[in-house]
């Protein structure tokens, strides 16, 4: 077996859940997720895509939409470049009952093994011209991305205008195998992020 000698692939096992969302002013939302990764990466087990139930706010949690939606996937790769990202998109009914998008967001799967929480800001694309704004208001069709994977890419972002309007909280449990044998310095993360607090405190300003 290759694992006994010097391995040339490493494994990243990701489990966790899309815990909840904060979308002030919106209700009855569901979310989809998919993974976007580089060409050296291959998913070996688990689900690459998923779609959750429709959840509502309640008296128990009057500002949080709880999905509690599981994620479980294992990747193998020879190169950390193109590290997988999870892309989340949230949809819900508008005034007339049509499904419209309420937010797109993406975040890298944590690199360090361990348990990690990530709060990702969610945004929707905006029309750039006033005429389009009017027609989308009139017809009730909001601008959407034809493929949500574009939010995981750095190319072509400069032409996009967005409005951020919510947050999704995801918890990850990451286990890696053979990264140290390949020479990567992976230490369990000993410091939780402090800067994140200041970035996501916008939740409370609503």
């Amino acid at each position: 077996m290759a694992a006994a000698g010097s391995p040339d692939v490493f494994l990243v096992a990701v489990s966790g859940q899309i815990e909840s969302g904060q979308f002030p002013g919106f209700d009855d939302l569901y979310c989809k997720f998919c993974f976007v990764y580089g060409q050296d990466w291959v998913p070996t087990a688990g689900l690459e895509e998923g779609i959750s139930q429709i959840t509502s706010k309640s008296d128990a949690a009057n500002s949080t939409l709880v999905w509690n939606f599981p994620i479980d996937i294992t990747f193998k790769s020879t190169n950390p470049s193109g590290w997988p990202q999870i892309v989340v998109s949230v949809y819900g009914p508008d005034f007339f009952g049509n499904d419209v998008v309420r937010g797109y967001g993406a975040v890298h799967v944590p690199i360090m093994p361990g348990r990690h929480m990530r709060t990702i800001p969610m945004f929707v694309p905006e029309s750039t011209s006033r005429l389009q704004k009017f027609t989308s208001w009139f017809t009730g069709r909001r601008p959407e991305f034809t493929d949500p994977r574009v939010v995981a890419q750095g190319e072509g972002r400069e032409v996009t205008r967005v409005r951020s309007q919510g947050f999704v909280t995801i918890s990850f449990n990451v286990v890696t195998k053979d990264m140290k044998k390949l020479g990567y310095e992976v230490t369990p993360s000993d410091m939780q992020n402090h800067s994140l607090v200041s970035v996501t405190e916008g939740i409370h300003n609503y």
Partner: peptide, 23 residues
């Protein structure tokens, strides 16, 4: 690169979520 233009709905934090992956 260049990020998207964010006009936040309700607070003064602009979110770009712009991925970086360099080797």
């Amino acid at each position: 690169g260049q990020t998207q233009v964010d006009d936040p709905q309700a607070d003064d934090v602009a979110y770009w979520c712009h991925p970086i992956d360099v080797h």
